[in-house]
Design a protein around this nucleic acid. Structure first.
Ligand code: FES
Ligand code: FES
Lengths: 136, 136
DNA sequence: GATTATGTTGACTAACATACTCAGGTATCG
DNA sequence: CGATACCTGAGTATGTTAGTCAACATAATC
């Protein structure tokens, strides 16, 4: 049930930018705060930009900043974009369902569904603002 | 947050054996019911045996059966044995803690802990008996 | 307008994990 | 004995992860 480094790093970066309140931060700055290697962080920030969470400014005095208010950034969406579906099995995924061969009689499916609901509820009701303000 | 095929197959096999109420089943039988390839299933059943969930009988009329009552087989334990810790990050794992570099100031850790608790509570309160009897 | 600080793009790689297969070996029953 | 099972260890194809790297594009400043 591990979260990959990519997802973890993306959230660290979002938090770092969320604490900047509108100021731009360079990749190097963010790398310093998050301890993510610069070259790898570039990739991740770029992806977050394409997903609409960040915007960037090029050239001197450039950098990244949030494109949305922290309370509009839902952690569940971020994780889904970076790591794929939250559901433990395709057959109980709402966002990307995939059939199982035994699905008709399967005694596991309701159980997976329970896990999915529990995880999704938690991740979808938490925003970046909640993390930053330590209000969980 | 996916569960691997190995974990899924192990649970399918345990369910199949749980439904047999003490009778032995051959690998081929179980393979037929679970749609898991015979050679792969062999590996998994062997592992489940070494973990103490199954016992086996060799030779003619041999096969596998449960080594414990279904209500003594906790799904969380099975998953942990086959897939590693339930926690999404090492720094919030109870069974196999691993330090994070940012741990002191990290705003994510409490959130991961919440996820861990939610998953662990669900998996550790469910037994094979619950799955078989459809009582979740 | 040259310099320099920044983000952008795309390819590339080493290491590991997953999902298996396969060729034998060994115990047990009849 | 010989058939029927489980047992053991190795091997392999494919994909994923966690990065690196070189070259490029753009914007501000001197
Ligand atoms: S796990 Fe998908 S149907 Fe059983
Ligand atoms: S995620 Fe482990 S300390 Fe932040």
């Amino acid at each position: 049930m591990k979260v990959s480094s990519r997802g973890e790093y993306a959230l660290r970066a979002l938090i770092a930018l969320g604490l900047q309140e509108g100021n731009v931060s360079t990749i190097a700055d963010i790398s310093g705060q998050t301890l993510v290697p610069v070259a790898y962080l570039e990739q991740i920030l770029l992806q977050l930009k394409m997903l609409g969470y960040l915007k960037s400014k090029r050239g001197k005095n450039g950098g990244y900043m949030l494109a949305k208010a922290p309370d509009q950034i839902v952690i569940g969406d971020v994780i889904r974009s970076l790591e794929g579906p939250l559901a433990p099995m395709g057959c109980v995924s709402i966002t990307s369902y995939e059939a199982c061969p035994l699905e008709g009689t399967c005694l596991l499916k309701p159980f997976w569904a329970l896990i999915r609901d529990s995880i999704a509820q938690l991740l979808d009701q938490t925003t970046l603002a909640h993390l930053i303000e330590r209000k969980l």
